[in-house]
């Protein structure tokens, strides 16, 4: 296992060294790094597999559930109105948790506290993801707009520090790839700038819809670091930093990535 890790480290470094020069500063969604065929999949709702989850989420939105027998629609009305712009503001402070929460955690809180459902199993519960996709769609085309909320400052600063910190057996920081080497290629894959513009999204590698947290987990595992448990504050901190970095960029959710 150690030998493999060492080999991998050598490979990563070699592929970084072999790559071409990165383009100048402007921020770029991962969409810009994708092959035309994958872009076409995201651009067309009739071809985008993520729309299957949106359809499930739309159905769940008005389905009464839990001990409260309440549907999301009971309290939030028409999602096309009440949820517009919500995904563009998350992670945000969740009073019910007394902590910053990602949008999926916020949806989970409503399922537990307001509907009276048992807590979702940790990880990627299908119904919660479907609702997340449906809620996120209501912000498609809007700019990412992190709230100016002092209660988020500490976690956001922690996320920024984490992004710069070396992790794992490969001893690489997120920034090594996503700030210093974006636009280059890593074993065939383009290294994006890691802007969270399209989550939740359908990743061809997963053959599934997944959240930003699942994507981050892949990168953490990729550098051979021990991933934090589901919904751990480290993930929320990283998301806060990423949305801050991407503020003003356009939301494309639910997207498609290779």
């Amino acid at each position: 296992m150690r030998r493999i890790a060492a080999l991998l480290a050598a490979v990563f470094v070699a592929s970084l060294a072999l790559a071409q020069t990165p383009p100048a500063d402007p921020r770029r969604s991962g969409y810009a790094d994708m092959a035309p065929a994958v872009r076409a999949m995201q651009d067309d709702d009739a071809a985008n597999p993520a729309m299957l989850w949106v359809a499930e989420g739309r159905a769940l939105w008005s389905k009464p559930e839990g001990t409260a027998g309440a549907a999301c629609a009971t309290c939030h009305g028409v999602a096309e109105r009440s949820m517009t712009g919500v995904a563009a503001r998350y992670p945000a402070w969740a009073p019910a948790a007394g902590a910053p929460a990602t949008l999926e955690r916020r949806v989970g809180l409503c399922r537990e506290l307001h509907q009276g459902r048992p807590a979702d199993a940790p990880g990627e519960a299908r119904a919660r993801l479907a609702l997340l996709a449906y809620v996120a769609l209501q912000s498609r085309g809007l700019p990412i707009s992190p709230p100016a909320d002092r209660r988020l400052d500490d976690a956001r600063a922690a996320g920024e520090a984490l992004f710069e910190r070396r992790l794992g057996q490969l001893n690489l920081a997120c920034a090594h790839c996503h700030s210093d080497n974006d636009g280059r290629r890593l074993a065939g894959a383009a290294i994006p700038q890691a802007h969270p513009t399209a989550y939740p999204l359908y990743r061809l590698e997963w053959q599934d819809l997944g959240s930003l947290q699942r994507r981050l987990r892949n990168c953490v595992v990729g550098i051979r670091a021990e991933p934090w448990p589901a919904d751990d504050p480290h993930w929320v901190a990283l998301e806060l930093h990423l949305t801050h970095r991407a503020r003003g960029m356009t939301l494309e959710a639910p997207g498609v990535r290779p």
């Binding site: 890593l186 074993a187 065939g188 894959a189 290294i191 590698e205 997963w206 699942r214 987990r217 892949n218 990168c219 595992v221 990729g222 290779p258």
Partner: peptide, 9 residues
């Protein structure tokens, strides 16, 4: 076919 860089465990 090229391969993705970061596999999921």
């Amino acid at each position: 076919v090229t391969l993705a860089a970061c596999f999921e465990e």
